[in-house]
C-alpha cells in the first residue's frame, strides 16, 4: 500500500511538470494547420440594404441589369399580345406565303391605338 501511495505521489509530481512543447514544434504544427486548412468561404459582395424591395427583386434576377431585361421582355410581350404591328403581319405573310391579316382581323392593330379612334 505504501508503495502505491509513493507511486501516486510520483504521478502527481509528473502531472505538475508537463512536457512543454518547444516554440519550433508549435510553429511547425501551426504551419501545417494553415497549409491544410480549407479555404474560408469567399466574402459576398456588399449586401443589399434591408427594406429595399427593388434591391431584393433585383437580386432574384441577378442584379439590376437582369431585372431591366426581365422588365423589358414583359413589356414587349404585352405589346405584342395586345397589338398587331404591321411588320409582324408583313413578316408572317412573307414567310407563310398566305394572307395572315385576314385571319386576325378581330385583333386591334397598332394604328388603332395610336390614332385613338
Amino acid at each position: 500500500m505504501e508503495k502505491q501511495d509513493a507511486l501516486d505521489d510520483l504521478f502527481a509530481q509528473a502531472r505538475s511538470r508537463p512536457v512543454e512543447p518547444s516554440d519550433a514544434l508549435m510553429a511547425r504544427v501551426l504551419a501545417d494547420a494553415l497549409a491544410e486548412q480549407p479555404k474560408a468561404v469567399v466574402a459576398r459582395a456588399a449586401p443589399v440594404a434591408r427594406g429595399s424591395w427593388l434591391g431584393g427583386l433585383a437580386s432574384v434576377f441577378g442584379g439590376f441589369g437582369g431585372l431591366a431585361g426581365v422588365g423589358g421582355a414583359a413589356v414587349a410581350g404585352l405589346v405584342l399580345g395586345f397589338v398587331q404591328p404591321a411588320t409582324v403581319t408583313d413578316f408572317a405573310d412573307a414567310v407563310l406565303g398566305t394572307d395572315v391579316v385576314a385571319s386576325v382581323t378581330l385583333i386591334p392593330s397598332a394604328d388603332a391605338l395610336l390614332v385613338g379612334e
Partner: peptide, 8 residues
Amino acid sequence: ARGEAAAA
C-alpha cells in the same frame, strides 16, 4: 474546417 485561422 470553415477556414478560421484562430481556431487552428
